[in-house]
C-alpha cells in the first residue's frame, strides 16, 4: 500500500516551544487515520505542516507522493482540507463562498457546487450569507469546501466540531462512504475519542508534540472487544462448571473472563449454570475495553480506574467500560 501521507522526523519549533517533535507518520492510501491528542498536543501544527502552511524546522513531508516545497507548493488539487474552526466570507452567500473555492481549485464543472451543497444538506442555506450561519452550518460549509473538488485525500482538523448529534452521525457516515466506496484517504484530528474510535481504521496519539503510540486495526479491535467478567466465591467450582459446559475462559486475578459471543449475549445462561453448580456469581458484567482510558493513561500517566491486572502485558493498560451488569 502506498502512502498518502509520509512524514520523516517532522519537527516544528516556535522559538523555544517545541510544537512537533520528530514525528514519523505513514498514512496508507484508503485509510481513515485518526489523529488524537489533547489541546495543545501538536495536532493542528502537524496538520498545517502537512498542508504546507508552515515550514518544518526539521524533517520533511510528502503528500500523495510529492514532497512539499518550501513555498507551500503541493498536490493541492487532489487534497481537501479543513483547518481549525471553519471560516467563510461573511457577506458572501454559502453558494458564493463555494463558487470561490471551485474557481480557486480550478474546477471547470459548475455543477460541483450544487452537488456538494446537496451532499452536506446545505440546500436551504445556499443563498444565505455565511455570516448568519450557525456554527454547525458553518462547519458544514467548511466540510463542503473540503469535499467540493472531489479530492483523493482529506485532511480534517476536528471535523465534528460544532455539529449537533444528528450532524455528527451524518458526517461520520459521509466520511465512511467516501473512504470505503470511493477510496478517499482521510486524516482527521480530534480530541473527541468516540468519534475517532467509531470511524478510524488506525489511530495515532500525539502528546506534547510526540507521536507516542499508533493503534492498528487489530489493536483497535482489541480495545473495542466486549467480554464477560465473572466473579464467584468458589473459583475452582466455577472453573470446573464452565469447562464442563464447554466455555473457554481466561483469568485476571480473581476474575473469570469469557470472550466468546455466546457467553456475552447470554450472561443469564452463565448465571444459571453457575447457580446450578452451587457457585452463584457475586458479580457478572459485560464490559468493553476503552480507548478513552487507554488514551488518558498514555497522555497523563494515570488511570480513571484501577487496571484489572498487573501482569497481563498490554492488556493491563486496558480497563473496562461497563455496558451492563447483573
Amino acid at each position: 500500500m502506498s502512502n498518502a501521507i509520509e512524514t520523516n522526523q517532522l519537527t516544528k519549533r516556535f522559538g523555544d516551544i517545541l510544537a512537533v517533535d520528530a514525528i514519523d507518520l505513514r498514512v496508507g492510501t484508503g485509510e481513515i487515520y485518526g489523529f488524537l491528542g489533547l489541546n495543545g498536543a501538536g495536532k493542528t501544527t502537524t496538520i498545517r505542516a502537512l498542508l504546507g502552511m508552515i515550514r518544518p524546522s526539521a524533517g520533511n513531508v510528502k503528500v500523495l507522493g510529492q514532497a512539499l516545497g518550501p513555498d507551500g507548493r503541493g498536490p493541492w488539487a487532489r487534497v481537501g482540507h479543513l483547518v481549525e474552526s471553519p471560516s467563510a466570507y461573511p457577506e458572501l452567500s454559502v453558494r458564493e463562498n463555494l463558487e470561490i473555492s471551485r474557481r480557486l481549485y480550478a474546477k471547470q464543472d459548475t455543477r460541483l457546487v450544487d452537488k456538494v451543497i446537496e451532499q452536506l444538506a446545505l440546500g436551504s442555506y445556499a443563498d444565505r450569507k455565511a455570516g448568519t450561519l450557525s456554527s454547525g452550518n458553518l462547519q458544514r460549509l467548511g466540510l463542503a469546501r473540503a469535499l467540493l473538488h472531489e479530492p483523493e485525500l482529506l485532511i480534517l482538523d476536528e471535523p465534528a466540531n460544532g455539529l449537533d448529534p444528528a450532524g455528527v452521525v451524518e458526517i461520520r457516515e459521509l466520511l465512511r462512504t467516501l473512504a470505503y466506496e470511493k477510496g478517499v484517504t482521510i486524516f482527521m484530528s480530534s480530541h473527541i475519542l468516540t468519534e475517532v474510535d467509531r470511524l478510524a481504521t488506525r489511530i495515532g496519539i500525539i502528546h506534547k508534540g510526540k507521536l507516542i503510540e499508533e493503534l492498528d486495526t487489530h489493536k483497535l479491535e482489541q480495545l473495542r472487544a466486549r467480554h464477560l467478567e465473572v466473579q464467584v466465591r468458589n473459583l475452582e467450582a466455577a472453573q470446573i462448571c464452565l469447562q464442563s459446559a464447554g466455555f473457554k475462559y481466561t483469568m485476571k486475578d480473581e476474575t473469570i473472563i469469557l470472550t466468546d459471543p455466546h457467553s456475552i449475549s447470554r450472561p443469564d445462561y452463565i448465571a444459571h449454570i453457575l447457580v446450578n453448580a452451587g457457585t452463584a456469581p457475586t458479580r457478572l458484567a459485560v464490559e468493553q475495553q476503552d480507548l478513552e482510558e487507554h488514551f488518558l493513561q498514555l497522555t497523563s500517566g494515570t488511570s480513571l480506574r484501577a487496571p484489572l491486572s498487573r501482569d497481563e502485558g498490554e492488556q493491563s493498560n486496558l480497563t473496562p467500560r461497563k455496558e451492563g451488569a447483573l
Binding site: L51, G52, M53, D71, G72, R73, G74, W76, A77, V79, H81, V83, E84, S85, S87, A88, Y89, P90, S101, R103, L104, Y105, A106, R145
Partner: peptide, 18 residues
C-alpha cells in the same frame, strides 16, 4: 480578521496569483 487566510494557502491556485 475573518480567519479566511488559511483558505487561500493549500490551493492549486498559487498564493502569488491571489
Amino acid at each position: 480578521s475573518d480567519r479566511t487566510a488559511k483558505e487561500l494557502l493549500a490551493l492549486p491556485t498559487p498564493r502569488e496569483a491571489i
